[in-house]
Amino acid sequence: MLRTVTATRYVTPLREGGSLPGLVEADDLGMYVLKFHGAGQGRKALVAEVVVGELARRLGFRVPELVLVEVDPEMGKAEPDEEVQDLLYRSAGRNLGLDYLPGSLGFDPLALDPGPDLAARLMWLDALTLNVDRSWRNPNLLVWHGDVWLIDHGAALYFHHSWGGGPAKAATHGYDASDHVMLPFAGEFESVDRELTALVGPDLLAEVLCLVPDEWLADEPGFATPDDVRAAYAEYFTARLAAPRPWVRALEETRAARV
Rank of each mutant, 00 (worst) to 15 (best):
T4V: 15
V11L: 14
V11F: 04
G18M: 09
L23H: 14
G30I: 15
Y32E: 09
V33F: 00
R43W: 07
K44N: 05
K44D: 14
L46W: 05
V47Q: 07
R57K: 13
G60C: 05
E65G: 00
V67G: 04
V71C: 03
K77V: 11
A78N: 11
P80S: 13
E83A: 10
L87P: 06
S91M: 08
L96Q: 01
L98T: 00
D108Y: 05
A111C: 01
L112S: 02
P114C: 06
D117N: 04
A119P: 05
R121N: 00
M123K: 02
D133K: 10
R134C: 13
L141P: 01
H145T: 01
V148N: 03
V148F: 07
A156M: 06
A156K: 01
L157M: 15
P167T: 15
K169I: 10
A170W: 10
T172P: 14
A177Q: 05
S178Y: 02
S178M: 06
G187H: 10
E188C: 11
E190H: 12
S191C: 11
T197G: 15
T197Y: 03
A198I: 02
A206W: 10
V208T: 00
P213L: 07
L217F: 10
G222R: 14
P226N: 10
D227M: 11
V229Q: 11
A231C: 04
Y236N: 03
T238V: 06
T238M: 06
T238S: 15
R240W: 02
L241I: 12
A243W: 01
P246D: 00
A250R: 06
A256W: 00
V259D: 12
